Simulated assay, not measured.
Amino acid sequence: MIAPNVQHSQGVTLVGGGALGGRDLRLALARAPMAVAADSGADRLLAAGILPDAVIGDFDSISSETMRKLPADRLHPAPAQDRTDFVKALQRIKAPLVLAVGFTGARMDHGLAVMNGLVLLPNHRCIVIGPKDIAFAAPPELALRLCPDDPLSLFPMTRLEGSSEGLHWPLQGLEFAPDAMIGTSNKVARPEVRMSFNRPGMLTILPRKRLDAAIKALAAAPFWPESDGSAAHDR
């Protein structure tokens, strides 16, 4: 396990180099007050008038002007090229919650890489905030308070099974896989939704307006055991 460079008792807002509106940043920082940049996310933070508490990455896309403005003790190089800056940053953050902004944008490969990062580190409670939706890796069990008819999509990044209560289309009896059955465009049938999965690898996608419900649910959810091959993250 990689030793963390950044620790916070409440939460961390992780900023990427993609499109970032001021509303996104305010939304995240109000819930996760420490600002950390993944590489060129530092450019986005400085442009918003915020000095990052830490910058993690290989520094191949951050501007030279921003590098000159950053205190040396806030720079945490992670030069390995076998992982994205998103994953390298998550690996080096220890916090009960990470809200990731600036990671969704025009490039499809970048978006897929971020989704890969979520399931690669399923015990790092990270929620990616997009323009309309949020996404996070499902824990073994999850109880959500939502509204009937809310959309709830599930996308498997590996072969797995699950069960559910409170969804319009139950998960029981289905074998999910990225090249077979997926669970997009499901919807909420009752205010309390319960789901469980037999292994890590399921992405949960909710409307952006349900961010606080997702935060509350993840805070109460169990972690995947290390024996499942997931990268365990201490509470």
Rank of each mutant, 00 (worst) to 15 (best):
K132E: 15
I129G: 03
M115Q: 14
E141N: 13
P151M: 07
P148M: 08
I127M: 13
L146Y: 05
P148Q: 06
I50P: 02
R92W: 02
A72L: 12
A37E: 07
A95C: 01
A47Y: 00
G130E: 07
A42R: 08
R145F: 01
I127K: 05
D82G: 04
I62D: 02
H124G: 02
D85G: 07
R68P: 00
L121N: 10
A38T: 05
L70D: 06
D53V: 01
L118E: 10
A138D: 07
V98R: 03
I93K: 06
L27Q: 06
S61V: 09
R26W: 00
A78D: 03
I134T: 09
G117Y: 10
S61P: 10
D43K: 08
R26K: 08
P148T: 06
R145P: 00
A100G: 07
V119Y: 07
A106F: 12
L121G: 12
R125F: 11
L112M: 15
L146S: 06
L146I: 06
T66C: 12
R83Y: 06
A35W: 02
A78P: 04
T13L: 07
K88R: 13
P139R: 08
G18T: 13
C147K: 12
F59V: 05
A72W: 01
T84H: 03
S64D: 15
F136L: 13
K132G: 09
T84R: 01
P139F: 11
L142S: 12
G22E: 01
V128E: 04
L25M: 03
A95Y: 02
A28Q: 06
R83A: 15
S40D: 15
V55P: 05
V87E: 13
G130V: 09
A37L: 10
S153I: 11
R31G: 05
V119K: 06
G17S: 13
C126T: 15
E65Q: 11
F103P: 09
L152P: 03
L152A: 14
R31W: 02
L25C: 09
F136P: 13
E141D: 11
A95H: 02
A80C: 09
A38F: 11
E65G: 15
A135T: 15
T84E: 04
L14H: 01
S153W: 12
R74D: 00
D39N: 10
G105Y: 05
L120T: 15
V15A: 11
K69W: 00
I127E: 09
F136E: 11
F86P: 10
L142W: 14
V101L: 10
R23M: 01
F136Y: 14
H76R: 08
A48S: 01
L90H: 10
H110N: 10
I62C: 09
D149W: 07
A37R: 05
L97D: 03
T66P: 03
Q91S: 13
L144Y: 05
A30M: 12
R23K: 04
L46V: 04
L112Y: 14
F103W: 09
V36N: 11
T104C: 09
K88L: 02
G111P: 00
L118I: 11
A113V: 08
R74E: 00
L118M: 13
G16K: 08
L46N: 03
V114Q: 04
A28W: 06
A95Q: 03
A47E: 01
L118W: 07
C147S: 14
P96D: 10
S63R: 04
L142K: 12
P33L: 00
L90S: 10
